[in-house]
Design a protein around this nucleic acid. Structure first.
Lengths: 145, 145
DNA sequence: TTTTTTCGTCTACAGTTGTAAACTATAATC
DNA sequence: GATTATAGTTTACAACTGTAGACGAAAAAA
């Protein structure tokens, strides 16, 4: 897992990333076409987003006779995982199980994926504690006199 | 589930919220003590965070002879769930199963919670599709000629 | 080759966030 | 009552974000 560059990807920039991830590599025209259509953003806005991603080294640009081809330096899989875990890290450890349950209940998951998740859980179960040691500030009542 | 106010809670503010959630209600001295210790933030910084949360109506302040008692207007459970789902929403639907798997593997979950998750999944399995219909931009190759 | 289109770069600007000092009003202590 | 401590309010300020116009160079079209 690479260093966490996801926290530098803003929510608008994420939209650009998804296009580049899908296409592996692309030019700005394509990105602008897709996003101005889907998001209603102006070409200028999209150009800014792309160039910020390049500046942050999340995208790379290769010049082909004055036009750029963009490709990504971070895998979608890695970015997605890090993104998710970052957001959950703020949450009190003792709630995290419940949060995952909420996600399961509210996201569309395919049957093969469900089977895989069950297997993963059964596996994890073997060494799981009865109660998680929560060292979150939230649970560390000591501090709070 | 209340309207999504979590997107207005910044990551620094979240720390304040966790304290108020734990204590149900508290005064600024307590918040300042805990966070200046745990986070090394200056009292001023913490006061700013608290007052921004009040301005955003995420916390309420009740004056008791010139001092405030703060309490929260949104439940931790709701905030946590929304927080998590928001962050996952950016991710291509077809990846979401994998992301949950990643979370399961990387978070500490208690045995009872694991059992509960397995049960939840088995339940969800009944009506699960073989393949999720992904209408994410990412998967909607049509658009991308 | 002149004109037009395209695309990358630069500049802009308001709102948010992290970070915190300064000021003020009130409460507690001497 | 005067002094000191405490806590709420105001102001500050740079970096980051969303949003986008303007400018300039190169490519394509006329």
């Amino acid at each position: 897992m690479p260093k966490d560059v996801t926290s530098e990807i803003t929510s608008a920039e994420w939209e650009v990333m998804r296009i580049v991830w899908t296409l592996k590599q692309t030019d700005s025209k394509t990105i602008i076409d897709v996003l101005s259509d889907k998001k209603g953003w102006s070409p200028s806005t999209i150009k800014t987003l792309v160039s910020r991603l390049v500046k942050k080294k999340i995208l790379s640009a290769q010049k082909h006779k004055s036009k750029n081809i963009y490709f990504t330096n971070i895998e979608e899989k890695d970015a997605s995982n890090l993104m998710a875990i970052n957001s959950v890290e703020n949450i009190c450890c003792m709630r995290q199980g419940a949060v995952i349950k909420y996600l399961i209940n509210h996201l569309d998951i395919s049957k093969p994926d469900i089977d895989d998740l069950i297997k993963t859980l059964e596996n994890k179960r073997t060494n799981a504690k009865e109660k998680v040691n929560c060292d979150c500030l939230n649970c560390d009542r000591e501090v709070l006199k």
